[in-house]
Computed example of a mutant assay.
Amino acid sequence: MTRTLILIRHCKSDWSANQEDHARPLNPRGRRAAPRLGAFLAAEGLAPDEVLCSDAMRTRETWAGIASQLPDAPAPTLSRTLYLADPAAMLTAIRAGTGTIVAVIGHNPGIGELAWSLAEKPPHDERFGMYPTGATTVLRVGAPWSDLTTGEVTHFTTPRDLPDPG
């Protein structure tokens, strides 16, 4: 069975909010960007059936914006372990996944490093190496989650690439 993994860096956060890092929310640009990602996933038939999400405010708000554009969006599994996680910690969480389309919402540098390490062939986009806010990579995975080592990149996008869903 083919599985799909979606790796999403949280959208732009609000550094002026004067909050500790874990509680930092999205800024207005980030709140506009997240629904763009959701509309993209919906249009591509990539609505996740499982969402693994850092429990930080900005990742939760990113998922809420994405979910607003998806039919039957699942409740995320919030995890403190995914907060500022390194690729190994994220991979452990993914390998325990049960969905067919699993989305992970996390932070850099870990989420970008994980995307790079899992990509059989990285996309020809210089932004992939930087993994800016809202960067989203979709990988087609042929192995069970428990055996995940690589996947084929089918999509790479950022909110700036996408239209406003209106």
Score class of each variant (00 low, 15 high):
P163L: 14
A43H: 05
L114H: 09
A56S: 15
H22C: 01
A143E: 10
L82I: 15
A56V: 08
A85I: 13
M130P: 12
R140A: 15
D55P: 02
M90T: 04
D125I: 03
A47G: 12
D164P: 05
C11P: 02
G134F: 09
A67Y: 12
P163C: 08
V138C: 10
W63P: 00
A67H: 06
P87T: 05
S13Q: 03
P76Y: 04
A43R: 12
S16C: 07
A39Y: 07
E126V: 04
S146A: 15
G45N: 07
W63C: 00
D161A: 07
T81H: 12
A42I: 04
D14T: 06
Q69C: 15
L139K: 10
W15E: 07
L162H: 11
P109C: 08
A64N: 11
F40D: 00
D164H: 12
T136K: 12
L84P: 09
A17H: 04
T59G: 06
S68P: 10
D49W: 02
G166H: 11
A75W: 09
R36S: 00
L26Q: 00
S117M: 13
G97K: 03
P109M: 06
D14L: 02
V141C: 08
N108K: 14
A56G: 09
V102K: 01
P159K: 09
V141W: 03
G30A: 03
C11D: 01
P123R: 07
R29D: 00
P165F: 10
E120P: 05
D161L: 13
T133R: 09
W116R: 14
W63Y: 11
I105N: 04
L41Q: 02
P144K: 09
T92R: 13
P25E: 00
M57D: 09
L7F: 08
P71S: 11
V138I: 09
E20T: 10
D164L: 12
E61W: 08
E50Q: 00
L84H: 13
P132N: 13
Y83I: 07
H10I: 02
Q69A: 14
Q69N: 10
T150D: 05
S79L: 13
D147C: 10
V138H: 13
P159W: 12
P35K: 04
P122W: 10
T136L: 15
I66M: 11
R160N: 15
G166E: 13
R3I: 00
R9E: 01
T154M: 14
D147L: 14
R58D: 04
L37M: 03
T81K: 14
E20K: 08
I111V: 15
H10P: 00
P25M: 05
R9T: 03
L78Q: 12
I101H: 10
T62R: 07
F40S: 01
T4F: 01
I8R: 03
M90E: 02
G151L: 05
R80L: 13
L70K: 11
I105D: 05
L41C: 03
T81I: 15
V153T: 12
A73L: 07
A67K: 06
D55G: 07
R24S: 03
D164I: 07
D49M: 02
A42V: 02
